[in-house]
Amino acid sequence: MTTPLILGLLAGAILSGTSLLYATLGETIAERSGIVNLGLEGILLIGASVGFSVTAASGNAWLGLFAAGMAGGLANLLFGWLVVTRKANQLASGLAMMFFGFGASALIGARYVGAVIVGLPKWRPSWLAGFRWVKATTLFNYDLLTWVAIPVAVLVWWALFRTRWGLGVRAVGESPAVAFAAGRNPAVLQYQALSCGGVLGGLAGAHLSLSLTLTWSEYMTAGRGFIVIALVIFSKWNPLRAIAAALLFGGAESLQLQMQARGSLISPFLLDMSPYILTLIILVAWGGSRRLAAPAGLGRTFYGSE
């Protein structure tokens, strides 16, 4: 029985798109407050490693998931201390955070490489399980993170664009000086945005280790943190567009694997490049309009509140 390509693609896109979406949402919140965290890859790794280690040690994947979120939030607070309080260069600090993440995650996870865990439980509504094509794929057989991914994206959008807090975050991202003059504290808002973003990044990493692979291995994110930084640009710093961005990129990755599984005669090396070619196309396509959408204060250090 061969599943239609489109269903296989969709199943794969959701499978690999879930962690991409959480990470994109996290980075979007941080960048909306004017801070770009190039060390997201490290945050994902810390989330994956802490989530797996705590799950392996405690036998409870929920505890692991919680710990991963906390660890991601803490790691981003450390980053915040560097770039907000110490006013260090964001790009350099981000790269330093990335290497910190490589090392810290390797150290934390070392004892648990090869551990066998029971991952996050998955549910599929029984009325959906009756459909033949659904049963043949992973469609609708999801863990909690996947089920609530889109509601979380809507929630992030609501928080950023429909609340006073979100207005403050965005104002700081556009111009910390103006926000400061209007009585908002840029440093506090940036710390808040970074910790929310870190929690989402930690959860994204945990999805890889606690649901998709049930494995911890060093550098298992394999560059997804960097892809996400491109996805934030692609989605124009909008949490709702991020849903489409994550699905599209997840779909590109799934396309090459599904095509191979269907016996496509296209070279696997060429197919393997497709997600990255897509990233390049996206960056080129949006290149001209980037200025219009990016928070004006992104990447700049604010010295004024001292």
Partner: peptide, 8 residues
């Protein structure tokens, strides 16, 4: 690449 192995 564990994630790709799972997806594959």
């Amino acid at each position: 690449d564990k994630a790709k192995e799972a997806e594959a």
